[in-house]
Amino acid sequence: MVTYLQVIISGLLLGGVYALLAGGLTLIFGVMRVINLAHGEFLMLGAYASYYLFMRLGLNPIVSLLLTLPLMFLIGWVAQRFLVTRVVRAPLLTSLLLTYGVSLALTGGAQALFTNDFRSVPFMSGAVNVGELALSIPRLVACGIALVLTAAAQYFLVRTRWGKALRATSQSADVALACGIDIDRARTLAFAIAVALAGAAGTLTSFLYTVYPEMGRTFMLKAFAVIVLGGMGSFPGAFLGALALGVIESTAGYLTTTQVAEAVIYVTLLGMLLLRPQGFFGLKEA
């Protein structure tokens, strides 16, 4: 019983970090109907940023978040203004291919600049005992930060003027446009925020997992599973989907092997697509 509780909790902790990555992915999809295949690579960039800030300047990842967040926001802004905005109205394939090109360019760039070596940030370790449960400190901290950022993003979306503009664009770009919302600005904002969140997720993963140029791929696939679970385009849905996926993954990993756990994730993704493609909170029309 205690063991299983342990498994559930580590799943939820994992889910917190997934939520950060998937939240951005779903935001981009909602506002632009674009599937950002480079999302995992933005995570990778965030991870390398905090790795180098830690190794060169000795900044711990939590502090360096204050630098990586605005930096990644800026990268996202530029990527949207110069690239993604040009394919928003194009057929699905065009934006898929464009973001895949960006993904390859970033992975390849990282391989050339940072080499293929596996790296890690030796920051925090150990566990705290709560009753009979042993909770990993770095995971608790990562999940805590992820929750704070997700809550901040949700607050922004629900409470602020620009957040509302963003959600309106997500509901219907035409109506938003008719209501005088600058949808180009809303889209740019959405992409920049999404990339910033992905970068933050990268910072958190930098001290949980190994950092290497191709690390984004697995995370991106998991983020896909998350947003399909939660409903593509729904930010709160992505949060719940992330927690669900975290629990599914850690349960499957506990019961079988890591590889099978990975397969379980994809099977979940497919099953969900077939049974309820709009997810639990998804937009009606894709």
């Binding site: 999809f29 109907r33 599937i35 699905l92 898929l96 696939l221 896909f224 599973a225 399909v228 593509m232 092997t257 590889q259 099978v260 990975e262 397969a263 994809y266 099977v267 993704l269 497919l270 697509l273 077939l274 493609p277 894709a286």
Partner: peptide, 28 residues
């Protein structure tokens, strides 16, 4: 048969999932 009932982005993501699932299955 099931996947082609999915439209647009759902089919694209679904087929990505199919490929990964098969790859893992072969690995296992």
């Amino acid at each position: 048969y099931p996947a082609l009932r999915l439209r647009g982005p759902y089919f694209a993501v679904g087929m990505l999932g199919v490929a990964e699932a098969i790859r893992v299955a072969v690995t296992v």
